[in-house]
Amino acid sequence: MRKRIFILLGLAFLLMLPSGAWFVSSSLSDAGSDHALSDSAANSSKTQQTDSTVSSSTDTPSREDDKRPFEQGIQDAVASVVNETRSLFISSDLHITAVGDSLTKGTGDSSGSGGYVGILKDSLEKSVPDASIRVQNYGKKGNRSDQILERLNKPNISSSISESDIILLTVGANDIMKIVRSNVTDLTYEVFEKEKDPYEQRLTSIFEQIREENEDAAIYLLGLYNPFNMYFSDIPELDQIITDWNMIGRNVVNEQENAVFIPVRDIFQYAGPGYYSEDNFHPNQRGYASMADRVLDYIEPDLEEYQNGTNGENSND
């Protein structure tokens, strides 16, 4: 029975991928008020309404009308992060390098804001208008830990890291996805258990390589969240897998100097579909705004100290 549940879970993972996300999206579009139909579906719906009842179309709000409050809610959430007055002190130019997977790239943020990294930049510039803030984003969709490790050797990335004051990192989700793809017909908790040590070794190597380029920068590792919690909350093994991967991240960070683990799991745990993009996997702009706000919360206490060259201790509380 347990094995059968994992097989179903594996199929669900695959459906959540871009190639199958349309199936999940279409199944959920009628289930929650926060899901908007695609343009083509919305147009088709309007056409059917017009053909069946012409007189009622003028009295019934369109789906676009229903969509506006939701979109406005997203914009308000982002604005609250960007415009929040923060007591930040940046004594010199600030250089941030973001490296990682699709969460760093900002996949799912249809607004073009650049995900949490772009929103973070906007918020810092708003809070400290006189400072020179440089943010370079090297997120790449689909990257696993081994691929991120390899990309660190690229001259543009290594150069950016060497010049950075702060380094942001997202990694691990695609390592989990690889396990699922490779074992979709025989998926058990044990196959994840076997991959924990190799993943920890690769993550440690990522930190070591970053330190070879920059001994002093503060490194912030963002944790993982469970995008399937609202659909598969009755499968404790899935939640345990995310817990395990986050614990690995914390353990690696605890072994580093001037490194911080930033949890984001709780942001999405009870958030519902309103924080996810149309693929029901990546955050939308609202979700990324919450991530940016969390990152700012962790950067604030260390930023002034680090700019003054006094922050040399591990901070992982």
Rank of each mutant, 00 (worst) to 15 (best):
Y220F: 13
A79E: 12
S132R: 11
K121G: 10
S233C: 09
L14I: 13
D244G: 05
I74F: 08
G172H: 05
A42G: 13
S159E: 14
I96C: 07
N183R: 14
Y306N: 04
D76V: 10
V24R: 02
Y220G: 03
G112V: 07
S277L: 03
Q240C: 10
T243H: 00
L187R: 02
A41V: 11
A77R: 04
Q136R: 15
M16H: 01
D34K: 06
G309K: 06
M291Q: 01
Q209L: 02
S158C: 05
K194T: 07
N316G: 02
D279A: 01
S102D: 05
S38P: 08
S113L: 12
R250L: 15
G142E: 10
T107L: 12
S182I: 01
T104E: 04
N43L: 15
S19G: 00
S277F: 03
I5N: 03
E190A: 06
E125D: 13
K121I: 06
T170D: 06
I148L: 11
Y306E: 00
Y231R: 00
G73M: 04
T185I: 08
S38Q: 07
N83G: 13
S290T: 07
D39W: 14
R202K: 06
T204N: 11
R211E: 14
I248S: 08
G139C: 03
Y270I: 14
S91K: 14
G114W: 04
L11T: 01
Y199H: 01
R151S: 11
D39T: 10
K141V: 13
S27P: 11
D34A: 11
E163D: 10
V253M: 07
D239K: 09
T85S: 13
S40P: 00
S91V: 11
F6Q: 01
S315Y: 14
V184I: 13
R265W: 05
S182A: 15
Q240Y: 03
G274E: 07
K121H: 15
S315P: 08
T170K: 03
S182L: 07
A31H: 12
G312H: 11
Q209D: 07
Q72C: 00
N280P: 00
E190Q: 10
P273H: 05
I74S: 08
G287E: 04
F261I: 00
V264S: 08
S315W: 08
I166F: 07
V54H: 12
R202G: 06
L296M: 09
L203Y: 05
Y138K: 02
I157L: 10
E195G: 04
P155N: 12
L222I: 13
A77Y: 05
E200I: 05
K194V: 06
S44Q: 15
R211K: 10
L11R: 01
M291K: 02
Y199R: 05
A12F: 14
W245E: 03
R286E: 11
V82N: 13
I74T: 15
T204F: 05
E84K: 11
D51K: 07
S159P: 02
G272L: 02
V260D: 12
I242L: 07
N174H: 09
I235D: 00
